[in-house]
């Protein structure tokens, strides 16, 4: 169930939970900071790659993974600050048009990990518009629970590339930390995808 916060905006963890519910073999990358905690709160899994760094790289990691695994859905869940730092990657992704890649930006209009300084989206920068202009035709602004559910269906349909700017409540929620040893994070996802031979490649 997708919840609305007192601000009238979407509650981030309920959005992420809805997107990952009954996910099947869908792979998820969580951008550093709150999106990584959000995918972990929805249920830590070898199919999750929560990031502790590499700011600006989440969408491109999604592209490399989507190109390598064209038969799997790949979902990147990241924040507005992280996406803005790698904004050029929207152009790069658009040139490849990966049908199995979705990039969902949880837009709270702030840098949440560093003291809630405002990001450019606070001043009206239209990320979905930028993605559409780059050539990602299905680029949406999501503000209601119904739109979240429609987004979930679109991600599952695999007719991407897909981009969504989800306007969320800015409240900082309790930390739900994933493992911090990044060698384990990559190895467990590789094994989940490739089996034990992942470690013999």
């Amino acid at each position: 169930m997708v919840e609305i916060a007192q601000s009238g905006k979407l509650e981030r963890r309920s959005v992420v939970r809805a997107l990952l519910e009954d996910r099947g073999d869908m792979l998820a990358i969580g951008g550093l900071g709150a999106p990584a905690w959000d995918i972990t709160a929805a249920g830590d899994s070898p199919l999750n790659l929560p990031l502790w760094g590499g700011m600006g790289g989440a969408a491109m990691m999604g592209l490399g993974l989507a190109l390598a695994q064209p038969d799997r859905r790949v979902l990147v869940v990241t924040g507005d600050g992280e996406m803005l730092m790698g904004i050029g990657s929207l152009a790069t992704i658009a040139t490849k048009q990966p049908r199995n890649l979705s990039v969902v930006v949880l837009d709270n209009e702030h840098y949440g990990e560093t003291g809630m300084q405002e990001t450019a989206t606070r001043h009206g920068v239209d990320l979905a518009g930028m993605a559409r202009a780059a050539g990602i035709a299905d680029s949406r602004r999501v503000e209601t629970p119904e739109q979240v559910l429609a987004l979930r269906d679109a991600i599952r349909a695999g007719q991407g590339p897909l981009f969504a700017q989800v306007k969320i409540d800015a409240a900082s929620l309790p930390l739900v930390l994933p493992p911090r040893e990044a060698a384990i994070l990559q190895a467990r996802m590789r094994e989940a995808i490739l089996g034990p031979e992942a470690h013999l490649q």
Binding site: L49, G56, M61, L65, L67, S89, T92, T95
Partner: peptide, 26 residues
């Protein structure tokens, strides 16, 4: 070969990581 022209080189570091996660060398 999947050839990807980047807007900046750091995108490539991130992309190669994603490729390796999915079992491809870049």
């Amino acid at each position: 070969l999947k050839v990807v022209t980047l807007t900046t080189e750091e995108e490539g570091i991130a992309m190669l990581f994603g490729a390796w996660l999915g079992g491809e060398k870049g």
